[in-house]
């Protein structure tokens, strides 16, 4: 389970970020509050991804499978990070 959580960590955090933004935008319709919360949630999610990436560097690599899992996981974290920033942009622009 730990391996799956690590492999999918970046994308799971993206999903948490997206659904939190959706709920937040549906509950708090006033833009200033929604925008502030968006920024806070985004920073928290980016921090979580940075923490995961930091942990990833310390994982012991013994086999080709370990190396492959780490490569995909790190890329997933990168994609998740970019997607989180992209997802937060409407709160600044709309």
């Amino acid at each position: 389970m730990r391996t799956w959580a690590f492999l999918l960590g970046g994308l799971v955090i993206w999903a948490v970020h997206f659904f939190t933004l959706y709920i937040m935008a549906s509950v708090f319709l006033t833009p200033p509050l929604a925008r502030t919360l968006t920024m806070l949630i985004t920073l928290a999610c980016l921090g979580a991804i940075a923490f995961l990436a930091f942990k990833a560097r310390r994982i012991e690599i013994e086999t080709a499978t370990d190396s492959w899992v780490r490569a995909v996981a790190l890329l997933g974290m990168g994609v998740g990070g970019v997607a989180i920033v992209w997802q937060a942009l409407p709160a600044l622009l709309v």
Binding site: L11, F18, A25, V72, G76, A91
Partner: peptide, 28 residues
């Protein structure tokens, strides 16, 4: 594949852009 699996669950309301959803939600 994995990214598609995740992100595709965040796009359902693009079929509902004309239904009068809140602007911020539409942006997301």
């Amino acid at each position: 594949f994995l990214a598609t699996g995740f992100i595709s669950f965040g796009v359902w309301a693009h079929h509902m852009f004309t239904t009068g959803m809140p602007n911020l939600s539409i942006g997301f």
